[in-house]
Design a protein around this nucleic acid. Sequence first.
DNA 1: TCACTGGCGATTGTCGGCAATCGACAATCG
DNA 2: CGATTGTCGATTGCCGACAATCGCCAGTGA
Lengths: 212, 212
Amino acid sequence: MPEPLEHPSLPDTVHRLLRTRILNNELRAGSRVVEATIAAELNVSRSTVRLALTRLQTEGLVEISPRRHSVVTRLSHDEIQDACYARYVLEEGAVRAVLARGAEGLVGPLTEIIDRMTRAATAHDMAAVVDLDTEFHGTIVRAAGKARLASLWSTLDGQMGAVIRSSLEEQQLDLAEMPKLHQDLLDTLGSGDPGSVADALYRHYLRPDYEL
Amino acid sequence: MPEPLEHPSLPDTVHRLLRTRILNNELRAGSRVVEATIAAELNVSRSTVRLALTRLQTEGLVEISPRRHSVVTRLSHDEIQDACYARYVLEEGAVRAVLARGAEGLVGPLTEIIDRMTRAATAHDMAAVVDLDTEFHGTIVRAAGKARLASLWSTLDGQMGAVIRSSLEEQQLDLAEMPKLHQDLLDTLGSGDPGSVADALYRHYLRPDYEL
DNA sequence: TCACTGGCGATTGTCGGCAATCGACAATCG
DNA sequence: CGATTGTCGATTGCCGACAATCGCCAGTGA
């Protein structure tokens, strides 16, 4: 299978760069993002930055006010819950498909991710833990073999990274808890019962007091 | 609440135009789409067309091969099923939220849509029926009050229009059946049981032999 | 003092141009 | 004669420039 050699386009690169900057809080929520400034800094044209920004907009990471300027999205509590619910719905749909074809192949990779997460957590490496969280859930979603589902899921990626970060920072969540939370999820997945996995996912993503 | 007066940007307009052209099969699946040609025809710049095309790409309506040209997506049977499953998952998630807060307010609007659909079906106005189908489901999804969910749902809009059209054309589906199918869905919705609505939705979107 | 108006800098919307890269076909070689 | 290479038109990737529009603020008059 001769892989077609992925060559990232310039807007792709800019998009990814800005994205990580936002997620690392180098670009604070609420701060203005000016096309020309970024363009000059990265030494690319404004059009390129522009395209990257519109992508970030569809991901919900920046808001573009026409004719005015762009702002890094500041997620309210409600919006966070909203994003979490969407993510939950998508992942539950994926899990149902995974279970229908048997989840055995997943246990190995997921366990390995949890191992790495444990190491990252003891090292207090927050960035790594967040990445591994994405990898964990992404592995599940991709295993469903539903391309559109996975693609929708990944558009929520950025926001979720922000969500986890803020949860951790507000100490509603302990870094050390993360591996355990995912181990629980994996255990439920092993049980093979779609209903209980759905429940576990719900608890994983949403607080108990969340109202539908 | 002073609505900010939506002024569609030029790319927006181009995007919508191309979209309807594709959905109306004026731009056939598989045919090439050349930026410069469209630009000249609509008397706008290539950059504008370009932006519209990238949006269509994220909606899965065109495929852009880097450095080559763009092609109107030709959906294989599997891809159609894939898109349908994604749509089903999202709408089920929305319905659960709707039911949790009571679906009474929905019955009126949905009945009215079905009425209009009946009239359109007897008039053999396929385009209208397809539009009303999206309106029906869109009304449900928006009623859930989950912004992200609705936004993800609407990115699948284009593809679903194509799906319905092809189903109708292949005569796996009769135009006259459409209102009845939606009435069934509405009835189940009235029952208030999430499980049975989920089943009904599944049947609505997917063939019985669909494998998860 | 305060509301309003008009100008100014800042920022985005749109544009057309140049260079890079592609596919197709012709020319060339073994 | 088949395979490889060189060339050419077509098309996109990226760019910088100009025009439109915005928010801000000083100036004006009541």
